[in-house]
Design a protein around this nucleic acid. Sequence first.
DNA 1: CTTACTGTTATTATAAATGTTACAGATTAA
DNA 2: TTAATCTGTAACATTTATAATAACAGTAAG
Lengths: 146, 146
Amino acid sequence: MVSVNSEFTIAVHSLVLLAYRPDRMATSEMIAANVCTHPARVRKVLSCLKKTGYVATREGSGGGYTLACEPGEVTLAEIYRVTSIGSIKPSWCSGDVEEDCLVACNMADVMDGIFSEAESRMLTFLEQMKITDVLERLRAAHAAKP
Amino acid sequence: MVSVNSEFTIAVHSLVLLAYRPDRMATSEMIAANVCTHPARVRKVLSCLKKTGYVATREGSGGGYTLACEPGEVTLAEIYRVTSIGSIKPSWCSGDVEEDCLVACNMADVMDGIFSEAESRMLTFLEQMKITDVLERLRAAHAAKP
DNA sequence: CTTACTGTTATTATAAATGTTACAGATTAA
DNA sequence: TTAATCTGTAACATTTATAATAACAGTAAG
């Protein structure tokens, strides 16, 4: 089975958590505890979100991560493009370019195109989902519990 | 990185190959050579397509797989549903249901819902792609080569 | 100058995917 | 009825991908 990069999940979770916190800031350790992973992994994903301007960081004592974007304006599509574009395509490839057979030698390319198109359909959906929408859903899920 | 189950690729490749062949039949060994995998893997995937009626099999000498559907009517969405539904969702889950935090304890569920919707958008695209369309693309890719 | 952070790399552990072997059961043909 | 050929399936081995962990340089605050 293949799937979407879990760094996408970590990125979204981190941004939502920052947006949820009144001061909009947290350390990698706090985020890692909430996400359930290792702080170093959080730092790796967030350093990527820093480069693209979604979070700001401050090193040193009292430092950490702060939200550097409007959660009501950032879509999951943007985050997906930054963290996981191309990830729905399986790493395993069918066929062999060296073969004579029309099917065998072109299948990898053709499937590649199909996966790209499928991914872009997925992106049109993620385009509509904003960080605040995820928060909204979290609240709804919470309210629905007994 | 996570991605779509590669059994989807094998299933599509096998069906396209059967549709391509004049007699519309082949053994697992022939298909495996074309796909570039082990015959046992092909048999596993195709036994699933047999149960759902897309191929027919004959055991014993002279046996093998034959196409049991109209390649111009079967969509990749049907094949995806049979082989890989749910596979875009990463196996790794963020958060922890036992936590008090609104974000931590509901994120897994919420992301699950988002992945399901994203997958269904992908399916509306695959709904339009038929086995014959894939063959078409293979021929186009072949013609485009120098 | 000590403490608390990020940024990054390297290493190890774990999980998942794929390949391979093996054999029972079915069918054909000699 | 025996030999050959094929599917169906399970068990096991191998490879690859993913995630966790450790380590440390660099930075800022107090």
